[in-house]
Amino acid sequence: MIKWWKILSALLILYTLIWGMLGPVPQLDILNETIRNVYYHVPIWFAMLFQMGYSVVYAVKQLSKNDLKTDIISHQAAQTGLFFSLPGLLTGSMWAKFTWGTWWTFQDPKLNGVAIAVLIYLAYFILRSSIDDEQKRARIGAVYNIFAFVMMFVFIMILPRLTDSLHPGNGGNPAFGKYDLDNNMRMIFYPAVIGWVLFSLWILNVKKRLAFLTYANNEI
């Protein structure tokens, strides 16, 4: 049977899809109704960060246990995280076009940081695919994964907070300070974050099992 948390993730996202559109939101200039993107754009990035965190935890496990299964999980989680950055970037670009007036701006440190972080993770996959020996690939991949995670964290979470950013919650402001005031939005935003993180775990679960099956098949 399907696990309960998978169904929960579907129900939570369905709830936010419907009530995110119908529920009351604060009336703000420039943002107008696009403030509802907070329910869809931001949780996608939370899911991405969660997957990268999951990946780095299994990279550390790989280094301490030297078990190839942890390497497969770490690799699949990084793939899932990278996949989630795609809708994150696309929705962010769309939102930026209609509020900041441009698809992409190099003025914003968060956008630059995300671009660099995605490139760092792309290098991780290239590095892995260039090593044939699986023990070596697992160990070098894990070491690079830890480096990639730290760099991503610096570029996305730390540097944008030190300078001015167009993103709310950056440039010295506390994150979500503006939205935290609005309880109506919180009732939809938090379920959305939980729902999308669980959903990303579901995708990882399917990918992981598929990778295990493929690995077992290749062994024979």
């Binding site: 399907i2 998978k6 399917v206």
Partner: peptide
């Protein structure tokens, strides 16, 4: 996704 999940379970 549920369909794929269940199919994978069968294979496992």
């Amino acid at each position: 996704l549920i369909y794929i999940d269940l199919k994978l379970k069968k294979l496992e």
